[in-house]
């Protein structure tokens, strides 16, 4: 289905299609990525009451699934963030182009363009778009932790995982200043960088040699809600099994 992209003159120019591979066999649910994401992207915290109502703003969350019953019970972890769909259901429904498709395959979210219709949130099958129900609060001096590369979203705005687009931009600019190409593994979103088990790998899916491409070709590879045809940029590698 990606061929349809070629209808669009702006998408043919890019060399990159940023993607992520997550090896579920390695994920231990340690939450390092979750906090890392908060720190990198100025994700606000909402407090207990709001969190109990389901309004936490985690751009990335570890979903935990139960299987079986005691004593043969198993739990599985799955980090889920914005899947950066190629055919993103959220993009077409935004009336003001606040979310759109970048020419490097990112599902871009332009915060200050957002008027807050929340249509994208309803359309997203992964429910990975977070709404700012209130203005974020950073009691002094906590505001000094804020990353100046990422704006703080005010109330009434939709936000979500961007694959740390600010890091992609920085690495690309640095590489350009040094007159070279971006190398595989040079760009790391905060989650991939902190992941202690190296379960999260980020890279260019257009480069067949990149680690993420290799993982995407694994026999264990699948995509979340694949049947919806959203063509996610996040590839999961399902957990393995050892027989003894």
């Amino acid at each position: 289905m990606t061929t349809r992209l070629s209808d669009n003159p702006t998408t043919r120019l890019s060399d990159h299609r940023w993607g992520m591979a997550i090896d579920l066999d390695k994920c231990t649910g340690c939450q390092a990525c979750v906090v890392s994401c908060h720190a990198e992207n100025n994700v606000p915290i909402v407090g207990e009451e709001e969190a109990a109502y389901g309004r936490t703003a985690h751009w990335l969350r570890i979903e935990r699934y139960w299987e079986g019953e005691y004593p043969n019970v198993k739990a599985k972890f799955m980090p889920v963030m914005c899947q950066q769909c190629t055919e993103a259901p959220c993009e077409a429904v935004c009336p003001v182009y606040a979310t759109y498709h970048s020419d490097e395959g990112l599902n871009g979210q332009i915060y200050n363009r957002c008027i807050g219709t929340r249509f994208c949130g309803s359309a997203c099958p992964y429910k990975q778009r977070m709404y700012n129900w209130f203005d974020p609060v950073f009691p002094e001096p906590l505001e000094q932790q804020l990353n100046p590369d990422v704006t703080v979203r005010s109330r009434g705005i939709m936000e979500k995982c961007t694959f740390c687009v600010q890091r992609i931009r920085r690495v690309k600019e640095d590489a350009k200043a040094e007159g070279r190409e971006v190398t595989d593994g040079e760009i790391q979103p905060a989650c991939a960088q902190s992941c202690p088990t190296n379960a999260i790998v980020f890279g260019d899916l257009n480069d067949p040699e990149s680690r993420v491409s290799q993982m995407a070709r694994s026999s264990r590879a699948f995509r979340l809600l694949e049947n919806l045809g959203t063509e996610p940029g996040v590839v999961y590698l399902k957990g393995g099994e050892t027989r003894v």
Binding site: A92, V93, C94, V96, Y97
Partner: peptide, 8 residues
């Protein structure tokens, strides 16, 4: 311009 692809 607005996105005329949006049902809204």
């Amino acid at each position: 311009w607005p996105n005329f692809q949006s049902p809204l």
